[in-house]
Design a protein around this nucleic acid. Sequence first.
DNA 1: TTTGCCACTTACTTATTAGTAAGTATATTT
DNA 2: AAATATACTTACTAATAAGTAAGTGGCAAA
Lengths: 186, 186
Amino acid sequence: MSVTRERIIELGEDLIRTKGYNAFSYQDISSELGIKNAAIHYYFPTKANLGTSIVKTNIQRFEEMVDNMHSRGFDEVQQLNTFIKIYIKSYREQKVCLVGALSPAFDTLNEVTQKELSKMIDLILQWLTNILITGKQKGLFAFNELPESRASIIFSSLVASLQFSKVISTIDYKNICLSIEEGLKP
Amino acid sequence: MSVTRERIIELGEDLIRTKGYNAFSYQDISSELGIKNAAIHYYFPTKANLGTSIVKTNIQRFEEMVDNMHSRGFDEVQQLNTFIKIYIKSYREQKVCLVGALSPAFDTLNEVTQKELSKMIDLILQWLTNILITGKQKGLFAFNELPESRASIIFSSLVASLQFSKVISTIDYKNICLSIEEGLKP
DNA sequence: TTTGCCACTTACTTATTAGTAAGTATATTT
DNA sequence: AAATATACTTACTAATAAGTAAGTGGCAAA
């Protein structure tokens, strides 16, 4: 694959996560990469194409992470912790996650991008739900809610607290993450 | 106050909550209200002015709600439930909350709007934290985390699950809300 | 009756946006 | 050596954005 293409996707993701989908332009990318506006259109004819590719790349990255954890024989506690660490990294980088950046702008997205975003959230929530079910069966986790609801609460806590941490400095994000994990202990 | 001014603020809030701050334009408002573009600029010279006014109006609304609950003698369980009901209403209207719409676009906002948004999130989190502390003292709530962390987790769950509910249809928002309340029971 | 203010409209500017058509240098294949 | 594909650039269009300056109709106070 093309290096430029990969750089465009990388920078596009960064811009979505810092400014939002409707606030970044092809100019933002081209000027940063030292190329011309039309070069972006060469790889991604429309902004919707780029948006879709960025979400697809993120889905792939998530799936690779899950595969990697399975091949390493991670248990449910370790898997959840690995996932949470991604969010702590985003917190340090002062960026919201892709899902948290795109979801509020859902109505303004292209249909194809919308479907990919749906797929991504579905995938994460189903994975988290299964982690919770299996972890509970193994006695690694304890909770009273439906696993689907608890999964939504955990994922939402990570996503929105990250959004808040950009706005207010008093958010103790690491402690929130710790509380999420502690709250599942038997 | 002017009826038109109030309508602009109302419609502006709606647009932010459906499309996002950087996706709506003065044209969206003026065409909907049957007035001209410049009429909006008469009341709000810049988009930043309008954004700030919308956040300020929301802060005022929140403070009025809190005052109202106090004067009605609501206990902590009732107060939390009243707050959650606002989010269930937003869910039915297929709109994210103002905080969830603006926070991801924080970097693109005017400094004054940023400060008002910070103030709003601070206000809500401080109120929620106090509700949790007092409710726990009264034996109405039980939880192990720091009240600040639990407040962040609860608020984040409401905000981000609402965002997800716009993207995926399988989100059982009412059950998530129920789980949040159940999870605090002694 | 005139003066002045309020709530706009008309008509405009400037900047930025996504997107396109045609051209070009370099490397690769035939 | 010629043809072709790749990875762009040049130069543009059309639409939309925020914002402004000057004008206007109606109503109220002086």
